[in-house]
């Protein structure tokens, strides 16, 4: 692990019987936003639970802030971690004022003043019960809690799912501000790839409990492309380039993993840039049809 890595997973395994997280390995560099992409049930939440040590892992190692997360013995590491879930876990009858009093005794670095500044900024009435908040407000409350104890790492599990585009955009703006400080890092799990395209520096793509693709987002977007051709030309594209071929009655759409080399090799082919969503869909389809692991 380099000194600049905040979080590193090495061959982390968890077996639930009907679902297996299989030797998951990836790292999150310091000061970056790492998008953790995958469809529902791919293993994102399980991975996050393993990072937080809220479920027992069957194998592998997890390192956070340069220290190994030892099962059941690394609770203090969470002092520097802010967590946002897809659903608010606070009791609906609690008010933010009461949450402040609770958190004051939970986090050593809890900053009440900052918490109330965030509440005002997010338009959250501090005396109102959480249960009366809208979904967007609940998510903002979680973010306010996560940002008020000087967290160095934000771990978010589908924070933008179910939110309208305006609120999603607001939240992305908040995340951007958070990572402006160079020692702040975000691991953002989502299946809404458009959000990640806006903010992520790194991307880790998980499918069926396995990491199929990981790396710098811009590099991934630059390397991948959608080659469009006639159905009969599809087989001419080398397997070493083709991630997945989607063929209908007349046309073929092939996701290629090296756009530049491919365009040199097939100068007449039209290769368009692929979005993260298209890349994700093609990798999932490839796994479904062949069961092969990605690059």
């Amino acid at each position: 692990m380099t000194a600049e890595t905040v979080l590193e997973l090495k061959e982390v395994t968890k077996n639930y019987g009907d679902f297996r997280l299989d030797k998951v390995s990836f790292s999150v560099p310091k000061g970056t936003v790492c998008g953790f992409i995958g469809q529902n049930g791919a293993g994102k939440t399980t991975t996050i639970r393993l990072i937080l040590d809220s479920v027992q892992r069957d194998g592998g190692t997890i390192t956070m802030f340069g220290q190994e997360v030892i099962p059941g013995k690394s609770d203090s590491l969470r002092e520097d971690v802010g967590v946002v879930f897809d659903e608010m876990g606070f009791h609906e009858f609690l008010t933010p004022k009461q949450i402040d009093k609770i958190m004051k005794h939970v986090y050593k670095n809890w900053n009440s003043e900052l918490f109330f500044i965030y509440l005002t900024r997010f338009g959250l009435p501090s005396g109102k019960k959480c249960g009366d908040y809208s979904r967007g407000m609940r998510m903002k409350l979680q973010i306010a809690v996560a940002l008020s104890h000087d967290a160095k790492l934000l771990i978010m599990d589908e924070p933008t799912s179910g939110l309208d585009p305006i609120v999603r955009n607001e939240m992305i703006q908040i995340f951007r501000e958070f990572v402006l400080e160079e020692d702040h890092t975000i691991l953002l799990s989502s299946h809404i790839t458009t959000d990640l395209e806006k903010i992520a520096d790194e991307v880790v793509f998980i499918e069926g409990g396995r990491i199929v693709l990981s790396g710098n987002k811009d590099e991934i977007l630059m390397k991948h492309g959608l080659l469009k051709c006639k159905k009969e030309d599809a087989d001419k594209i080398s397997d070493s380039f083709a991630v997945y071929r989607e063929i209908d009655d007349f046309h073929a759409e092939i996701l290629v993993n090296d756009r530049e080399s491919c365009s040199k090799l097939y100068p007449n082919a039209v290769i368009e840039p692929a979005t993260l969503e298209e890349i994700m869909i093609h990798y999932v389809n490839r796994m479904k049809t062949s069961g092969r692991e990605g690059v």
Binding site: D53, G72, F90
Partner: peptide, 14 residues
């Protein structure tokens, strides 16, 4: 409230 989720993310031992 599914408070177990929040509890698991806090620096509080089991």
């Amino acid at each position: 409230a599914s408070f177990y989720k929040v509890a698991a993310s806090l620096p509080v031992s089991r």
